[in-house]
Design a protein around this nucleic acid. Structure first.
Lengths: 148, 148
DNA sequence: ATGGATGCAAATGATTTGCATGAAG
DNA sequence: CTTCATGCAAATCATTTGCATCCAT
């Protein structure tokens, strides 16, 4: 309880600084959404974010607007798992990584090594600036594979 | 004209074989859509496919159903450029490549080298099967960059 | 005070679906 | 002939938008 409160305050402080550095207003919905994103280790859909708001619900329109803002500010990354939902993940404090998604059970794991810096350099040589990339893997995980 | 007809017939023959090998019926809409995908070098949206149907229009519902079928059969790849539209590209006859999309003008170029086989092996070692990946790059192209 | 964020309701727009008809094997 | 694809219209559902109100600065 004591620990939890401490951690919460520390995160809040961090999020206030981030919003401030982008000249954005510090509001309850924004802080709450950032906390939910931080406490989850996988990309979340809008619906999942909404469900995790246990206390007071935030309007869906607000969540959509907030995520669009965060994406523009590059606070979150929009990730496509080739289903019908867009997913979002915090990027400000994580080292760059990717995902492997099971085509059957939709389980998500992180893929740590990022070996794409050389390709990004190649593109920069071609004249592109602000180069980023989006990389996701898809497969059948061992549990789903053995169940056939 | 003669050449064009020849080429058309050759493609048609190829597409008939592909559909046949998946026990799928050979229909005019399917052949037409495959031809459009083949004669374009970049991933197309449903709307773009529809526009390119100059002679007789195919119903949008049919295009959607066809693309969903082709995706399941792995005849096309669904590609996400982080805008509001899904895009589709033929995969059966191309060597694996990726894209670089300009964030401003949305120009698309191919990125040829694919250096990800080592990561796919790593994932297979972890127990995943049928591993594929989806990789797109985003940046500002030199024209858009100089225009500022 | 005041500009921007939120909530609510309504609109939008891509995608899906039900059903009758038509074409493929 | 029988199954399945197509066209059309209607439905669905994620996402956006307009507007009045509220809150952060």
């Amino acid at each position: 309880m004591e620990l939890k409160t401490k951690k919460r305050d520390k995160d809040t402080e961090e999020f206030r600084l981030i919003l401030n550095s982008h000249s954005q207003k510090i509001t309850k919905p924004r802080i709450k959404i950032l906390k939910i994103l931080k406490s989850n280790n996988k990309p979340l859909t809008i619906a999942e974010i909404s469900e995790k708001l246990t206390d007071r619900k935030i309007d869906l329109a607000t969540i959509y607007r907030t995520m669009n803002l965060f994406e523009e500010l590059r606070i979150v990354n929009q990730i496509d798992f080739k289903d019908e939902f867009k997913r979002y993940e915090l990027i400000y404090d994580r080292h760059h990584h990717h995902h492997i998604v099971c085509r059957k059970c939709r389980k998500v794991e992180n893929v740590e090594p990022c070996l794409l810096d050389n390709i990004e350099h190649y593109l920069k040589d071609k004249g592109y600036t602000e180069v980023t990339h989006s990389l996701e893997f898809f497969g059948i995980c061992s549990e789903c594979g053995s169940k056939n």
